[in-house]
Amino acid sequence: MGIPYYPGCTLSTKAQNYDRSGRAVAAALGIELEELAEWQCCGATFPLMVDDSMALIAPTRVLYQAQQAGERVVTLCAICFHVLRRSQALLERDPDMLERINWFIEQEYSGVHVVHLLEVLRDDVGWDKLAEQVVRPLTGVKVAPYYGCLLLRPHDEIGLDDPEEPTILHDLLRALGAEVVDFPFSIECCGSYLTVKEPQVSETLSMDIVASAREHGAQLIATACPLCQFNLDYPQRETEAGFTGNEMPVVYFTQLMAAALGLPEEDWGLDSHYVNPAPAIEGQRALADS
């Protein structure tokens, strides 16, 4: 089955490993992600003001490009997903705005459904089917599922999962054979864009999340958001004093899928992390194998 795919800017630059592992696992499950023929930035922030129609132009262009390709469009980046899904919802309930934006971009956007790859895995593939495809289960690997904000809230427009007690990443990790570590910070904010202007604030928030995962016995944190991945990973980078030995690797869920589905290691994309996740994944599996 082929689905139009919108990678977005971050997955083409800083998070190429998310893109690579995402495409590889989708292909392994028989889902062909067909990159949109032409696309540009989604705008990266959903319009913050009630009447800010200018900020809707970029996402609407993306939605229009997706509409040319099919009835739905799949994303991996939690930020693109958030912006596009909410733009879709806004244009559905506000015909005047739709007309205004269409007039400006000189296109006839009428509607397309934005989905996250996690939803495709849950609704099209199913967790049982996914579990059947696992050839090298993540037995004994203790993973903390970290959702962050943009994948879940505001629930009335996003509606991907329960906004306070989500399970979609939990279910995925269980299907891969991993040991899911429930921890109280799984839906807390990492500080998001404050990493640019107020890095000490986002670092404090992010390291609270990492500390909580560690206290609950996790060896890895799994996320679906490139900004969360950066915010949680970067403050743990190697300094002149070296690593502390207490680091917690932060991976994309697609990277764990690639490992569990037995795909070649170049598809895992573990080479561009500040804290190398490979020992946590392989060391534990080696123990399980022996």
Partner: peptide
């Protein structure tokens, strides 16, 4: 940070 938890 526009995390939307208060709203939720």
């Amino acid at each position: 940070t526009i995390c939307w938890r208060c709203h939720q």
